[in-house]
Design a protein around this nucleic acid. Sequence first.
DNA 1: TTGTATGCGTTATCAT
DNA 2: ATGATAACGCATACAA
Lengths: 333, 333
Amino acid sequence: MPARGRVRLVDVAREAGTSISTVSRALNGSPLISTEVTERVRAVAGRIGYRADTVAQELKLGRVRTIGVTVPDLANPFFPEFLKGLSAAARDAGHRVLIGESEEDPVRELRLATELADHSAGLVLCSPRLRPAGLRQVLDLQLPVVCVNRPVPGAGQISIDYAAGTRLLLSHLTELGHRRIAYIGGPPASWADGLRRRTLRKLAPASGIELTEIQGGWSGDHGFASGPEVLLSKATAVITFNDLVAVGLMSWFVDNGIEVPAECSVASYDDIPQAAYMRPPLTSLSNQRIILGRLAWAHLASCLGDGTRPRTTLLTPELVIRGSTAPPVRDRA
Amino acid sequence: MPARGRVRLVDVAREAGTSISTVSRALNGSPLISTEVTERVRAVAGRIGYRADTVAQELKLGRVRTIGVTVPDLANPFFPEFLKGLSAAARDAGHRVLIGESEEDPVRELRLATELADHSAGLVLCSPRLRPAGLRQVLDLQLPVVCVNRPVPGAGQISIDYAAGTRLLLSHLTELGHRRIAYIGGPPASWADGLRRRTLRKLAPASGIELTEIQGGWSGDHGFASGPEVLLSKATAVITFNDLVAVGLMSWFVDNGIEVPAECSVASYDDIPQAAYMRPPLTSLSNQRIILGRLAWAHLASCLGDGTRPRTTLLTPELVIRGSTAPPVRDRA
DNA sequence: TTGTATGCGTTATCAT
DNA sequence: ATGATAACGCATACAA
């Protein structure tokens, strides 16, 4: 941006026949400057195309109105929607958003966060894949950090309450009468995936549920590839890491003549818009991703403001029951 | 980032018992400084946690290694994938990327681009919804601009060749024997949508095709809502603005007992990963969105380097034929 | 109400 | 090989 040949304050001052301080004050709306001078200066500035050098402003004022945000993978629709909320809220507050994608790699994510920190007033780590040591390193950087979808020891967090969501899913399926349930998990470093697994393992025995855990990921490919394992598990219901996984799995079911929900129910997390357009439509946990983004900004903004540590906020997801879940058919039991 | 209480060059200098110039040179790997001093300085810097103030650097060096990019809507999967390619390439070259979402609003997009320009060395306008005057205004900003998926008078562009893609789609459908074809369009301000319509209108008569154009958008909702109109048109094949629209439309078809492709073929643009997992799987135009992003960076980088104007690059999409297209059934004709 | 002068943290020029 | 210092463009304390 500070291209050579740029119009500077001094150029406006010369043209307007005044000093640079007057120009600066006029442009910043200082009440010290007379109305007519202010108007003349502004007219001149507009005419010769003056645009303040934000780098110089930032240096002088000692603050930068940019925040950095890391996400594991932009192709997972959760994150763009989160970014929608975050960047809209930040922009409303006059801040810009620097994005970085870690590609699910903890090492890359650490580099990324450190790098972004150098250019930002604050950091949002969305679903960080960082290992505990890396997370600590980022938190030790000299700037406010808000952690999304992952608890941070000694700091605040803002997350979707996947434990509660998992309970909702599980009780829905058990109430329908399912006793053999498979869970197709997410990316290896996903903290949310770990939490769901722990929750399922804890709750399953109490409800007399036989739980099968399957390695997964976040894309349709993972769901499709999991088909045989699901079949082998003899599960009457499957919980998938997200709706895309469900899409893939359900395609495999169609290809292999397995009827949903008659022979196998499918329920999932996220409730992306397509969930309602699947046939059968997908039972899924609706989470407020855009609101989560706005909240992340709100937390960060409060840190930026008075330096208060953000506290824990949990968003409770809602179960949207659709046609992909139904009571199990006895024949296959 | 320039938080108060930051470690500065002078702090390192004091601790290392040398001058700030020596520290600056040592840290920047100047050959003027002796190896032992360089090492000592670096050790001290690392120990007391020095991180260069990038704002000061940018001011001094007169250049900023940040680029800005605008997209119409992050919820449309085309754009996150484009951003994947763009931001990866930019980061590999040591640049950061500032994103802005215009929410399909030309006015907002102009504000956004202007705003981002103040903080960037260059701008990428992805599928800009700007009106011609706004586009000109952005191009007149004093920085390199690369326009994606839209031609710019007198400047370069880098686009997916949707005209060629449309020809591919159309000839595929005509070869199958379709003569009544409906097109469900995209967002109002989409230049790509306009190009497709013009191409269809031009080609349809020559192939004896009766073309029905339907207002649309980019989401499943638009596809679903278009169902009745498609039915009314008596089209035997539908081209949808993108795969999400196709998802919605095909759901409506299922709900209304219309079989795809037997009663109506569906073909689309973008070939998102889910396209292969639809049942029937969707015939779609595969475009290299991630490569498009990398190319956008390459163009911008060349402008940033020697100030050359980027030239026109067109990426030709490939038609991926799947089960959603087939010859029309005579009964409905 | 306006102008002068200082400093933000860094790099680079000029001395030494 | 190293140190003192000017300048990047701006905002503001202080002077007038």
